[in-house]
């Protein structure tokens, strides 16, 4: 969509949000440019998963202040499906199971809504079949999964591979990966990370949400952010992730509190 390397993709300024009256995000700031890979780390309950859902437009959360600008547009003004069609993709931490709907029907509908948004003709079942088979290789997925109900009876690893397959089909400009490493054994982690790496290029950007440094051994971020109590309290490089792995999150909490970041 005309994104050049280094272009500003996402700008989050002083974002605050709540769920049912409980504040979760308390002033998040983040800038993401084309070609960048960011990791947002943090302890459980720090708000990092909430942040990813808000970017995708999850209806349970209410943004109370701040702004999110995506490719020069107010992202918060768009419906979730519109965000998707303009290139925002969220890989779910817990992908949903949809009994009775075959994976191929679901993937084709999703892919075709994107093609339609771009003014391209929709693919029929036969053409799509060919198209999706090329993409299966990205996550080394068995074609048999296309005929099964969406995520139904999939193992944790298979569900995550299916998420990255969707990323491959929808070719997002901004991909947000929410705990994509959770529940994966080492082989599945390698495959999923390998898929993400194949899909990363100079004209898109990745934001990974993760609790553990493990994923970062396979997908190397230029920026590592630490979220704590609804704010990004520290930003660094890969070395910050390694420090977190060694020291845990507590020392940051102790440092952050008196500093009063916001």
């Amino acid at each position: 969509m005309g994104v050049e390397p280094g272009d500003l993709i996402l700008s989050v300024v002083d974002l605050t949000a709540e769920i049912e009256g409980t504040p979760i995000l308390k002033g998040v700031n983040l800038t993401v440019r084309a070609g960048e890979v960011h990791a947002i780390m943090g302890p459980n309950g720090s708000g990092k998963s909430t942040f990813s859902k808000i970017l995708a437009g999850h209806p349970d959360y209410t943004v109370t202040a701040g702004s999110v600008t995506y490719l020069g547009e107010d992202l918060l003004a768009l419906e979730p499906e519109e965000r998707s069609r303009t290139g925002v993709f969220l890989a779910f931490q817990y992908p949903l199971e949809i009994p009775g709907v075959t994976n191929s029907d679901f993937l084709r509908l999703a892919h075709n809504t994107h093609r339609k948004a771009q003014g391209l003709p929709e693919l029929d079942a036969l053409d799509f079949d060919e198209y999706v088979h090329d993409k299966l290789d990205v996550v080394k997925m068995d074609p048999g999964f296309l005929d099964r109900s969406v995520n139904e009876g999939f193992s944790g690893g298979e569900k995550k591979r299916n998420e990255i397959l969707q990323m491959a089909l929808l070719e997002p400009t901004l991909a947000i990966l929410d705990e994509t490493d959770s529940g994966l054994d080492i082989d599945a982690l390698r495959i999923v990370a390998g898929g993400v790496n194949q899909l990363t290029h100079a004209r898109n950007a990745i934001v990974m949400i993760t609790h553990y440094q493990r994923l970062l051994n396979y997908i190397t971020p230029q920026f590592v952010h630490v979220m704590e109590a609804g704010r990004i309290v520290r930003t660094g490089g890969q070395d910050l992730a390694e420090e977190l792995e060694a020291r845990g999150y507590d020392w940051l909490r102790d440092e952050a509190t008196p500093a009063g970041v916001g």
């Binding site: 437009g57 499906e81 965000r83 998707s84 069609r85 949903l96 999703a110 994107h114």
Partner: peptide, 13 residues
């Protein structure tokens, strides 16, 4: 509604 949101997040109205 979580299923509907999942589909929305893939561009499906």
């Amino acid at each position: 509604p979580a299923e509907v949101f999942y589909l929305q997040s893939r561009g499906i109205d």
